[in-house]
């Protein structure tokens, strides 16, 4: 997971990029003819100083290697952010990032 936080005034432009296949469960493997099982991120949560500011929910129609961009107000240099995602198999990842 890659995160970029750009502060302008007290508003933070928060960009998140996750490396994830985002398989829909609708595609077939061309060689074997078997359906490729669904594997996609369902949830991305962003916390600012411990408070949840974004709770994003994704379906299969979010693109491979999903990219998200939000704008959070009331942010100061040095503030802590936490990012975490979970996919439909329960796999998850989390990352802390300081503004600045």
């Amino acid at each position: 997971m890659r995160v970029n936080i750009a502060l302008k005034g007290d508003e933070a432009a928060v960009r998140v990029l996750v490396k994830h296949p985002m398989e829909t469960g609708l595609r077939k493997d061309k060689a074997s003819g078997k359906v490729i099982p669904a594997l996609y991120i369902q949830s991305l949560i962003i916390k600012h100083k411990g408070q949840e500011v974004v709770n994003a929910k994704c379906g299969i129609a979010v693109s491979k290697d999903p990219f998200f961009f939000f704008k959070i107000k009331g942010v100061a240099s040095g503030d802590d952010f936490n990012f975490s995602w979970t996919d439909n198999t329960g796999k998850s990842d989390s990352k802390d990032e300081k503004v600045g």
Partner: peptide
């Protein structure tokens, strides 16, 4: 996305401190 088999692609709950803005990439 109206014509996708299941239209709902993405939804974000936003706290008061989040601006009314989202950008993402969809199929």
């Amino acid at each position: 996305v109206e014509k996708n088999a299941t239209p709902l692609a993405f939804s974000a709950d936003l706290a008061k401190s989040a601006a009314g803005f989202v950008k993402t990439r969809i199929k």
